[in-house]
């Protein structure tokens, strides 16, 4: 489970891209594609390899004026799924 001090990193070979055919954002990895919604894209857009998970959720809470604990819970599950599937790493 990703912790507040963990720093999520998008690994080499994985990138976020707008898919014009499907008219939505996707996360591309070698031979694998995941479709994102706007909230998922917003979470991944905060990942810069320097910000911790806690910093990311604090920024999202400010942007969306939503409870930080709810954002942390949703984001933890979202990023955890990507980590399990090797679309994301933590350092």
């Amino acid at each position: 489970m990703i912790g507040a001090d963990d720093i999520p990193v998008i690994p080499r070979g994985v990138r976020m891209q707008f898919d014009r055919v499907r008219d939505r954002w996707v996360l591309l990895a070698p031979e694998r594609t995941v479709a994102l919604d706007e909230i998922g894209r917003a979470i991944l857009s905060e990942i810069d390899g320097a910000r911790s998970f806690g910093q990311i959720t604090a920024r999202l809470a400010a942007t969306y004026a939503a409870p930080e604990d709810q954002i942390a819970e949703d984001s933890r599950g979202f990023l955890g799924t990507l980590i399990d599937r090797r679309f994301l790493e933590v350092k």
Binding site: L36, G40, Y64, A66, I71
Partner: peptide, 24 residues
């Protein structure tokens, strides 16, 4: 507004729900 994010894996033209309100 903030909503629970969703992840759907696209495989062989099919979409598989990985995470989100309907993922169980």
């Amino acid at each position: 507004a903030w909503t629970k994010p969703t992840l759907r894996e696209i495989e062989c033209g099919m979409e598989i729900n990985m995470y989100g309100p309907d993922s169980g």
